[in-house]
Every structure is written in structure tokens, then in C-alpha cells.
Simulated scan of single mutants.
Amino acid sequence: MTTNSATNSPDSAPDVLRYTAFATDPAGGNPAGVVLEAAALDDAAMLAIAADLGYSETAFLTPDPSGAERAYAVRYFSPKAEVPFCGHATVAAAVALAERDGAGEFVFATQAGTVPVTVARDADALRATLTSVAPSVEDAADDDVTEALAALGWDAGDLDAALPPRIAYAGARHLVLAAATRARLADLSYDFARLEALMRRLDLTTAQLVWREGDFVFHVRDPFPVGGVVEDPATGAAAAAFGAYARELGLVPADAELTLYQGADMGRPGVLKVVLRDGDARVRVSGSAVRIPSTP
């Protein structure tokens, strides 16, 4: 068992761990910062750590006020702002806890709600499965979709009519836009400021850009300008939201397992598994996470 504890006294810097989520290779997936003992940090300190680290999110953990065993309050900061929920940092934090305390069940109290996480050993690495808060899906206004397409440099004809635009939520809000071709998805060059302004107005965390390869296989990309990041390499919160979207629109059965590939266009390939269960509105997202080695 590896001990990753930190002593957060005023005179010592917190131990900032670095993991990549949704991959078994440190060069793949989405890097996240993890601070397992953040009780001594205020908002400004957490934001400064996240900005200095430069990853799309860093998770900061404190013991849950209830005192329950293996339960934590978790806050997530991007380099620019706090976000209510982050899937890849949840996976990273849960794996870091499992390395320290042993695999099993954890409970994360987030600003979006309670998120149970189970960690088990897979063939190559520890794998975490989070269960989202209750999701929702709503229509996207035509004018907002038009503005999003303009910011992305897409035309209406670039969209897949079988997967209509929607705003989906499973802890954070995401605008789902489906590309008609893999080539359209691969060619991502957008107006950062214009998309950021739209996303702030709509309270969006990312734009979830999707291309459907098969019945249960999708390729996704997630611009994240509101977090100060051009693109997120693997986005667990958006994957959960997309699972709710796919079920709501009848694209998949009520019981289904989806595979989302993300990050390949950035050179950081990752795999996200999304599980839907009939009779349970919540969405489960799972993936591996591994420690990123320290550089000299």
C-alpha cells in the first residue's frame, strides 16, 4: 500500500499528486491534480494550486463533516474557476485514496450532490466507477446552437440529424453537438473567446462534441474554454451527461454499456465506459487511473 498523505500545516505546502484518468498509460487520458488533505487550504490557495498545475481540474479532499468512514467532501478547481463536479478528477482522487487506504467503496460529497465511487483492481490498473447525481436533458435553443456552430466554425450541415443538439446534465451542464463525420470531429479549431462567452451565458462546463461510430461506440471531444483549457482530454462528467442524453433520446436501450473514445486527436488517448441501468436514472462512468511519475 502506498502512502500519499500530506501534512497541511501552515508552514508546509500540500502534497499535490498527479494522476491521469481513463487510461493505463501516464501519457494518455486526462491528467488531474489530487490533494488528499486540503483542510488547511482556502479558496484562493486551491485556485492558485490548480492554476499552477495547469491541468483541466484538480480535486481537493477533506474528511466529510458527517465523520463517516471513507467519505470525503470534494471540491474541484480548473485553472480559472471552481466547477461543481469533475468526473476525471473524481476517478483520479478515488484511485489515489485506494492506493493509500485500499480498494472498495468511497463517498464523495460534491457541490453537485453525493457521488458514490467504487474502486477495484483491473488487469492493468485500479479502475474507479462513479455513480452520477440524477441527470437531466433539456432542449437547446436554436439561436444558441447557431452561435455554438459559428464559434466552432461548423455549418448546420456538419451535424448528425439523428443526434439532435441538447443540453445534458449529470453534475455539470454540457451542450451536446453530434458531428456527421469523424473528419469533422477531428478538425477542431474554434473561437475561444466566442465559445467561452456563450458557455458562460448558458452555464455550461464543456461542449460535448460527438461522432457515433456504432450502436454503442462514440468518439468525443470537449472544448473547455470556461476553465481556461482549450480542450479536455477525457471528460467523465460529460460522459455521464451524454449517457443520460443517449437514453433520453432512445439512442440506446435502458440497459446499455457505451464506450467513449476521447483524447486521440490530442495525442492522449483514453477510454470511458458509460453504464445505464433500467430503473435507475443515475449514470455510471468508469475508467482506470495511474500515477504520473514525478519529473526530476
Rank of each mutant, 00 (worst) to 15 (best):
G227D: 09
F216M: 12
D215Y: 08
L177N: 00
E196C: 12
A170P: 03
G228H: 07
R184Y: 08
R221I: 01
L175V: 04
A179T: 08
D187A: 07
P223V: 03
D203T: 11
L202R: 14
A179I: 01
R166K: 12
R184C: 08
F218I: 06
R173G: 09
L202S: 12
I167M: 09
P223D: 04
Q208Y: 13
S189Y: 09
L195K: 01
L209K: 02
R200M: 07
I167E: 04
R212L: 12
F224N: 04
H174T: 06
V220N: 12
A179R: 00
V217E: 15
A207Y: 00
G227W: 02
V220W: 07
R212E: 11
G171H: 09
F192H: 13
M199R: 05
R182V: 10
L198C: 13
V210R: 09
G171V: 01
D203P: 00
A186M: 11
M199V: 02
G228I: 01
L188C: 11
F192T: 10
R221D: 01
A180G: 06
A168G: 07
A193K: 01
G214E: 15
A186E: 15
L175E: 02
G228W: 05
F218Y: 15
R212I: 10
R201G: 10
A197H: 03
T181W: 00
R166Y: 00
F216R: 07
I167L: 12
Y190M: 03
A168L: 11
I167V: 13
G227F: 03
A197Q: 11
A172P: 00
R173W: 08
E213T: 06
Y190C: 00
D191E: 14
E196D: 15
F192V: 10
